[in-house]
């Protein structure tokens, strides 16, 4: 960690839980979440804002956490992949990704999920093309995206029908 002079205490809520932690001002939000709060579900794939693996929800909006400083999250609300399931019940998107083999190595999955949660909040009835555009900033080297698109359409349908998650 850097010297105290360049450190600030950051107060924020992550997945509904309040945290107060010191962090170097130059630390990225992704590193802060992963290494200071030990929420390692958010992954770091490129650190230059292209791959989307580090996507989180910042005050409900998707953002690349490698392109934010931790100190910028002071006073804000963050949702990471760890905050999507309701206890043992997985979010419908999580369940659908498993059903449709929308993940293989799973490294891009947290960023896909947070991005898609925002999409379905904004647009509960997306077309396949809407889903493709929504995840166009999330790179996946394993799946060819097909299972992810299918899973999202399936989850959207189930969410519209009011079906819950899966434990």
């Amino acid at each position: 960690m850097d010297s105290v002079a360049d450190t600030r205490t950051i107060e924020l809520r992550v997945n509904g839980k309040a945290y107060s932690r010191p962090a170097p001002v130059r630390m990225t939000l992704s590193d802060f979440l992963r290494h200071e709060l030990k929420l390692t579900g958010t992954h770091v794939g490129c650190e230059h804002g292209v791959c989307g693996a580090c996507t989180i929800l910042f005050d409900g909006r998707s953002a690349r956490s490698c392109l934010m400083l931790a100190v910028q999250a002071n006073g804000h609300e963050i949702t990471t992949v760890e905050g999507l399931a309701n206890g043992k019940d997985m979010h419908p998107l999580q369940a659908a990704l498993s059903d449709h083999h929308g993940l293989q190595c799973g490294f891009c999955t947290p960023g896909m999920l947070t991005t898609l949660v925002e999409l379905l909040n904004d647009n509960p009835s997306p077309s396949a093309e809407d889903v493709r555009v929504a995840i166009s900033g999330n790179l996946c080297r394993c799946t060819g995206y097909e299972g992810i698109v299918a899973a999202t359409l399936d989850a959207a349908q189930k969410m519209r029908a009011g079906a819950g998650g899966r434990s």
């Binding site: 290494h35 992954h43 992949v81 498993s98």
Partner: peptide, 21 residues
């Protein structure tokens, strides 16, 4: 069948090398 790997990966509970500290 459901993959053994999925649940941890989907919940952010998997352990990649950078998750080890």
């Amino acid at each position: 069948v459901e993959r053994l790997e999925d649940r941890a990966l989907l919940r952010g509970e998997a352990r990649f090398v950078d998750d080890i500290s």
